[in-house]
């Protein structure tokens, strides 16, 4: 459980995080989404007590991070996979972390096994590929078997297999009842991993909702020879319906599956049933459109 209350961070005259208030619950993967520079990493650093908030508080399991004894047993975090002494061995790096929190040394071998780095235990951290560094960072996060896990852009630099592996890992950690907070600037990634989404832009909270709710916000195009009948039924279900043409509706408030089922139950033939946006990407872009820091204008892009 992570609780942020009016969390704010100012660097000089730049507001990196602006009055964030939210809770991240256990047993789910919470995606932390925002364009580059939105303030995701800064927020995570404040949660971990690395950066001091300008105002507001960040609590982990009800306590400020620095008050947690042996914090690696409570919170595991991967911020920057490359932030390891390049000359130290993979094993040495993890062993030092284990010692610092009274974690038995055998955990080092266990987590290396779990992330698939057992064969690289003796290699220098500086000689690892970016993908292997990410795995080492994840191993460090898992070391203390913590109930709260945070990952800052964990799939950067991973090959497709690695991406799938990380996705499954997050899902299984959440299924074990842990709090999993994972940032990304890619909606498509979060759509496949997260149960709940927190979207920020320019440091401000834009959305904090279950993934399903954000999916529902997507409009669906329906074509049917009985569009009128269907419109009435959908409206009765609480959907918002706009009749664009004699046999064409734009529906919001229900996912595609629900609309299709309703039409089927009513015996209404459909000629088309398609989400207006192929993914959440569009919704995300709409949500964050005002908050992208440096947008390339149409003209200058050419």
């Amino acid at each position: 459980m992570i609780n942020l209350a009016n969390l704010t961070k100012r660097y000089g005259d730049r507001l990196a995080v602006d009055d964030l208030t939210l809770s991240i619950r256990p047993g789910a993967v919470t995606g932390f989404l925002g364009p580059n520079g939105a303030g995701k990493s800064t927020t995570m650093r404040m949660i971990l007590g690395l950066d001091r908030p300008t105002s507001g508080t960040a609590l982990v399991c009800g306590r400020p991070y620095h008050e947690i004894e042996r914090p690696l047993r409570t919170v595991g975090a991967l911020l920057d996979a490359r932030a390891v002494h390049p000359g130290r061995s993979v094993r040495g790096h993890l062993l030092a972390l284990a010692r610092s929190n009274g974690i038995p040394a055998r955990r080092v071998a266990e987590v290396l096994e779990r992330v698939g780095l057992a064969a690289a235990a003796g290699r220098r951290a500086g000689a690892l590929s970016l993908g292997m560094s990410q795995r080492l960072g994840i191993a460090a996060a898992l070391l203390g078997d913590p109930g709260v896990l945070m990952f800052d852009e964990p799939v950067n630099g991973l090959d497709p297999d690695g991406v799938r592996w990380v996705r499954n890992l997050m899902r299984s950690l959440a299924a074990e009842g842990r709090t999993v907070f994972v940032s990304s600037h890619l909606m498509s990634e979060m759509q496949l991993t997260a149960d709940h989404l927190v979207v920020i832009g320019r440091g401000r909270l834009i959305a904090d909702a279950p993934l399903a709710d954000l999916l529902v916000a997507t409009a669906v195009l329906v074509r049917s020879p009985h569009a009128g009948d269907l419109a009435v039924r959908l409206a009765a279900e609480g959907c918002e319906v706009v009749r664009r043409a004699e046999n064409e509706l734009v529906v919001t408030g229900a996912p595609v599956e629900r609309i299709g089922d309703l039409a089927h139950e009513a015996g209404i033939r459909l000629h088309e049933l398609s989400p207006r946006e192929p993914s959440l990407e569009q919704a995300y872009q709409e949500l964050t459109a005002d908050s992208v820091e440096y947008r390339v204008s149409e003209g200058s892009a050419r």
Binding site: L50, H66, D80, R82, A83, V84, H85
Partner: peptide, 18 residues
């Protein structure tokens, strides 16, 4: 200083926040 040049100071302070 190697902790600052490599960035590992953040990991160190995560493990020992005091």
């Amino acid at each position: 200083t190697s902790e600052y040049s490599s960035g590992s100071i953040r990991g160190t302070l995560q493990a020992v926040p005091v």
